[in-house]
């Protein structure tokens, strides 16, 4: 969002791009795009899940990522372990925080106007950013990279091991959530609740518990993302703002509530991002991404892939 800090470019393209052929350049940007896309996907999955089930657009989604990244930073520093190991601490804490927010902030507002819900999560977002600003200042905290910034050089394609891990994790996460939602009893209960809350209650489903779990899972996705991202990107109170706007782009483009749609959209946005960033520069790249976002919102508000699902947001 306005004034949000932009993560620095990961690769030193400028040193070698001149000598490569155009094909190689395209391939390089494609791989970069996929890596970026994986990053956006892993941040967005939870957002789309929460919307699909609870019908809440969590404007504070990015702030959960930010808080989780701080947790990773401090856990790594305090215990001196590999950042990935901190998952065992970060995940339960973020899950719990998510459940708490659902219980005390979202649930009481469940039946109010949608504008109320927007303000609730916008308020949460502002409060979280500024709380962290008060506690830690506007400084940048760098989690040790622990070897995750090692460059994997595959001809024209160059990326970091940490990035590859994000790609693998994003695909695994999307697959895992899909299996969870379709194959387990709890997953089915979550879907049922998302489709018809009153009927779900009549089936004996504890709806408010399901909502808490869903919100918990939704923000746990960024918990996982934080563990993977923190070694690669610097942590600051405003880091979430940068990612969350892109998440909105991805989630709307993928069709709200659609997990697989989000993965696909994230890849598209990642690739667009990589190419536009390379050829047009950072600021204009933002124009391109937001331009696409607005076009999707206006012309395909149901997302690029789905049919007329989840059209509750347009009349």
């Amino acid at each position: 969002m306005a004034g949000g800090s932009k993560p620095p470019p990961l690769n030193q393209r400028s040193n070698w791009h001149g000598v490569l052929l155009a094909m190689d350049l395209i391939f390089t940007n494609l791989v970069n795009g996929l890596m970026l896309g994986a990053l956006y996907a892993i941040v967005s999955v939870g957002l789309t899940l929460v919307f699909g089930i609870i019908k809440v657009i969590n404007f504070a989604h990015g702030e959960f990522l930010m808080v989780a990244m701080f947790l990773v930073f401090f856990a790594t520093a305090y215990f001196g372990v590999h950042p990935y190991v901190t998952l065992v601490v970060v995940l339960p804490l973020i899950f719990g925080l998510g459940m708490l927010v659902q219980r005390v902030l979202i649930e009481p507002l469940q039946d109010s106007d949608e504008h109320i819900m927007i303000f609730a999560t916008v308020g949460l977002s502002i409060a979280m950013i500024n709380l962290m600003l008060m506690l830690f200042g506007p400084d940048i905290y760098s989690t040790p990279s622990s070897g995750l910034r090692t460059v994997v050089d595959m001809g024209p394609a160059m990326f970091l091991t940490g990035q590859l891990n994000i790609l693998i994790a994003a695909i695994a996460l999307v697959g895992g959530i899909h299996l969870f939602l379709t194959r387990t009893q709890l997953g089915r209960a979550i879907r049922a609740t998302g489709q018809n809350r009153a009927a779900a209650q009549l089936m004996g489903i504890n709806v408010s518990w399901v909502y808490m779990v869903t919100f918990g899972i939704g923000v746990s996705c960024v918990g996982l993302a934080a563990v993977l991202i923190a070694p690669l990107y610097p942590t600051s109170p405003e880091v979430g703002q940068y990612f969350v706007l892109l998440s909105f782009v991805v989630v709307v483009m993928g069709g709200l509530g659609s997990i697989s749609g989000a993965l696909l959209a994230a890849m598209i946005i990642g690739i667009v991002d990589a190419f536009a960033g390379f050829y047009l520069g950072a600021n204009v790249k933002d124009l391109v991404v937001f331009g696409i976002f607005l076009l999707v919102l206006i012309f395909r508000p149901q997302g690029l892939f789905g049919g007329a699902r989840n059209m509750s947001h347009v009349s």
Partner: peptide, 24 residues
């Protein structure tokens, strides 16, 4: 173009437009 959008989606679109003006 935004008249069809409701609630959070109108809000998102308005944020995106704001961001466009910011970059401009």
């Amino acid at each position: 173009p935004c008249f069809r959008l409701k609630g959070p989606f109108y809000a998102l679109a308005s944020i995106a437009f704001l961001e466009v003006f910011h970059v401009l």
